[in-house]
Nucleic acid binder design. Structure first.
Length: 556
RNA sequence: UGGGCCGUCGCCAAGUGGUAAGGCACGGGGUUUUGAUCCCCGCAUUCGUAGGUUCGAACCCUACCGGCCCAGCCA
C-alpha cells in the first residue's frame, strides 16, 4: 500500500469524482434518499457511508432527503427513526428535505412537459397499460390516447389534480418510445391518482409523482452533483436523463450506480424485515438480531464498527455476498479497544475452596483494561465460595483441555491457583458442586516453585456477585442466503436467542449504564440492554463472541 | 429471446499496457494471568474461457461461457 492507510480505499466512484473535479472546480453534493417506509438496515449504512463520506472527503455536503412519493406506505415513525440512525452513525446532513416539499414544482414541471408535447394523460387501466407495454422481447404499442392535444392533456391533468377521477382511471405518461428495448422508456407513468392521506401534505394532493419523475428533479433542485444509487436503477438512468434533458433543468446531476450490500445469513429487504416484525419472529425493528441500524445498536455494535465495515467492503458494481465474519470482526476490533473488562459467569457451577478461611474476603485490585491503564482499576472481592463456568470443568479431560478437571490445577484470573479435589453430584449424576484447594503462594501471578499453570479461568464470588440475565444472540438464519429461499421464514435459526437467567456477574456491573459495552473476559463483548427484565435484573446482550481458538481446535 | 450490467485467491477488493496491493478467512511460530489482544511468517507464475494485437496484456480487440437486473399506476 503506497497510500496513507487512513485514506479511504479507492473505488470507481471516488475515481470518477476525482476526474470530474479535475475538469471543473465545483463542490460535490450528494444525498441519501431513503423512503420512510421502514427502518434503515446495514445495507443502507453502506449507502450512507458512501454518500456522506464522499461529500466530506471532497469538502462538499450531503442532504438527507426522504423519498416520500407513495403515501400508502410512508409514515412519520420511520422518518424519525431514520434521522436518528443517520445521526447515530455520526453523520450530519446539510439540508433535510422531502420529495413532497417539491410537489408544487414537480407539478409545474409536468405541465411544462405536457406543453412541450412530451407527456400525455392516458385513460388505459393498469391491465391495459401492461398489455400495451409489450414484453421483454416484443415492442409495445402506442396508447390510443397518445395523440391527445396539448390543451386536452392540460385540462385532463388539472382535473386529475382536482380530484375528478378515481384511482387507476387516468395517469400522466411521458411520451418517449413504446418500442424501446429498455422497458422503462416505453411511455412510463409520471403521475398516478391516489386518494390517500400523505404523512406531510395530508390531503392536499390526490395525484402523486412516480419515483423516476420525482427523484431526478429533486436531485436537480438541490444541486446534487452525483446521485449515487444501487444497480437496479441502472436501467432507469436513461429516463433520469430524459426527464432532465427535456425539461432543461438548471442542473443535471450524474447518476452512478453501485452494488447493494448482501450479507451472509442475513436479510436486507425492507419488506421481509417488516414481515419478521409483524409476524413476531423478532420482538421489534430494533431486536438485537435484526440487521437494522437500530438492532445493531441495541446489540452493542459501535457506530465506528459499522463505518469501518462499510469502508472495508468497498464499492463496486459486482454483486457480492459479504461474509458476516467481516462485520463481526469490525465489532471485535472496535470493542477490544473501547470496552472495559469485567467478569461474568454465564452458566455457573459453585466451587468451594476448602482450605480458604470461611467468612474471609479479599479485595483484589485489578485493571479495567489490559492495555489501557487510563480506563482505571477496580476492586474484585474474592472469597471461599465462588462460581466458575460449567464449561471450564471437565470430568474426563483430554490432554489439550487445560482448564479445571479432577486433580488438575488452574489459575483463577487475577486470583489464586486452585486444584480440584472433589466432584459432588446429585442423584441423577449431574455435577452440582466442586471442591478445590488453593495455593496461598500463588496470589497475583506467580507460583512459589516456578511451576507452570497454563489454564486461566474467570470466576465471581458467590457472596458478592449479582444475578443477571444474559442474552446470547446468534445469526437469525441458518442458511447463507435466506433471501433466495422460497420461504425465508422456514430458515430462521431457532437458537438465535438464548436467554440465560442464572448468570452471575461481578458486583461492579450492578450500576452499569445502558448501552455501556464490556468485555466479559473469555466470553465476549456485551452491553447492558436499555430495558432490564421484569424481575429487575440487569440484562446484558452479547454483541459478539471473542475469537475462540479453543472452540476451533475442539471441533476438529 | 429484447435492453442494461458484472466476472482478479475460500469471501471481499486494489490495479485500467510494463510484469498481481490490502483486509477477512486459513496454516505455522512468538508474547501474554483472557485458548482474547498484539507481533512475525506463509497463503493467485496468475486475473471466467479461447483466440488475436503488442517487445510486453488482468488491462486493448474478437468470440464464447457463467451470473445479476428490467415487463408496478413501488422505490
Amino acid at each position: 500500500m503506497t497510500e496513507d492507510s487512513t485514506l479511504p480505499a479507492n473505488n470507481f466512484i471516488r475515481n470518477r469524482i476525482k476526474s470530474d473535479l479535475a475538469q471543473q472546480n465545483v463542490s460535490v453534493i450528494t444525498r441519501f434518499p431513503p423512503e420512510p417506509n421502514g427502518y434503515l438496515h446495514i445495507g443502507h449504512a453502506k449507502s450512507i457511508c458512501l454518500n456522506f463520506g464522499i461529500a466530506a472527503e471532497f469538502k462538499g455536503h450531503c442532504n438527507l432527503r426522504f423519498d416520500d412519493t407513495n403515501p400508502d406506505k410512508e409514515d412519520d415513525e420511520y422518518v424519525e427513526a431514520i434521522k436518528h440512525d443517520v445521526s447515530w452513525l455520526g453523520y450530519t446532513w446539510q439540508q433535510l428535505e422531502f420529495a413532497s416539499n417539491y410537489f408544487e414544482q414537480l407539478y409545474a414541471y409536468a405541465v411544462q412537459l405536457i406543453e412541450g408535447g412530451h407527456a400525455y394523460v392516458c385513460d388505459l387501466n393498469p391491465e391495459q397499460v401492461r398489455a400495451y407495454r409489450g414484453s421483454l422481447t416484443e415492442p409495445g404499442k402506442n396508447s390510443p390516447f397518445r395523440g391527445r392535444s396539448v390543451a386536452e392533456n392540460l385540462d385532463l391533468f388539472s382535473r386529475m389534480r382536482a380530484g375528478e377521477f378515481k384511482e387507476g382511471e387516468r395517469v400522466l405518461r411521458a411520451k418517449i418510445d413504446m418500442a424501446a428495448g429498455n422497458i422503462n422508456m416505453r411511455d412510463p407513468a409520471l403521475y398516478r391518482i391516489k386518494h390517500a392521506h400523505h404523512h406531510r401534505t395530508a390531503d392536499r394532493w390526490c395525484i402523486y409523482p412516480m419515483y423516476d419523475y420525482a427523484h431526478c428533479i429533486s436531485d436537480a433542485l438541490e444541486g446534487i452533483t452525483h446521485s449515487l444509487c444501487t444497480l437496479e436503477f441502472e436501467d432507469h438512468r436513461p429516463l433520469y436523463d430524459w426527464v432532465l434533458d427535456t425539461l432543461k433543468t438548471p442542473a443535471h446531476p450524474q447518476q452512478i450506480e453501485f452494488a447493494r450490500l448482501s450479507l451472509d445469513y442475513t436479510i436486507t429487504s425492507k419488506r421481509k424485515l417488516l414481515q419478521l416484525v409483524e409476524d413476531q419472529h423478532v420482538q421489534a425493528w430494533d431486536d438485537p438480531r435484526m440487521p437494522t441500524i437500530s438492532g445493531l445498536r441495541r446489540r452493542g455494535y459501535p457506530a465506528t464498527a459499522i463505518r469501518d465495515f462499510c469502508e472495508r467492503i468497498g464499492i463496486t458494481k459486482k454483486d457480492a455476498q459479504i461474509d458476516v465474519g467481516v462485520l463481526e470482526n469490525c465489532a471485535r476490533e472496535a470493542l477490544d479497544h473501547a470496552a472495559p473488562r469485567a467478569m461474568c459467569v454465564l452458566n455457573p457451577i459453585k466451587v468451594v475452596i476448602d482450605n480458604y478461611p470461611a467468612g474471609e474476603t479479599e479485595e483484589l485490585d485489578v485493571a479495567n483494561h489490559p492495555k489501557r491503564p487510563e480506563l482505571g482499576r477496580r476492586s474484585l472481592p474474592f472469597g471461599r465460595e465462588i462460581y466458575i463456568e460449567r464449561d471450564d470443568f471437565m470430568e474426563q479431560a483430554e490432554k489439550k483441555f487445560f482448564r479445571l478437571a479432577p486433580g488438575k490445577e488452574v489459575r483463577l484470573r487475577f486470583a489464586y491457583c486452585i486444584t480440584c479435589t472433589e466432584v459432588i453430584k446429585d442423584s441423577n449424576g449431574a455435577i452440582v458442586e466442586l471442591h478445590c484447594s488453593y495455593d496461598p503462594l500463588t496470589k497475583g501471578g506467580k507460583t512459589g516453585d516456578g511451576r507452570k499453570v497454563k489454564g486461566i479461568i474467570h470466576w465471581v464470588s458467590c457472596q458478592h456477585s449479582i444475578a443477571v440475565q444474559v442474552n446470547l444472540y446468534d445469526r437469525l438464519f441458518n442458511t447463507p442466503n435466506p433471501g433466495a429461499q422460497d420461504n425465508f421464514t422456514d430458515h430462521l435459526n431457532p437458537h438465535s436467542l438464548i436467554s440465560l437467567t442464572d448468570s452471575r456477574a461481578e458486583a461492579s456491573l450492578s450500576n452499569s449504564e445502558a448501552m455501556q459495552a464490556y468485555q466479559f473476559e473469555r466470553c465476549g463483548y456485551f452491553c447492558r440492554d436499555a430495558e432490564d427484565n421484569a424481575a429487575g435484573q440487569p440484562v446484558f446482550n452479547r454483541t459478539v463472541t471473542l475469537r475462540d481458538t479453543w472452540a476451533k481446535i475442539n471441533s476438529k
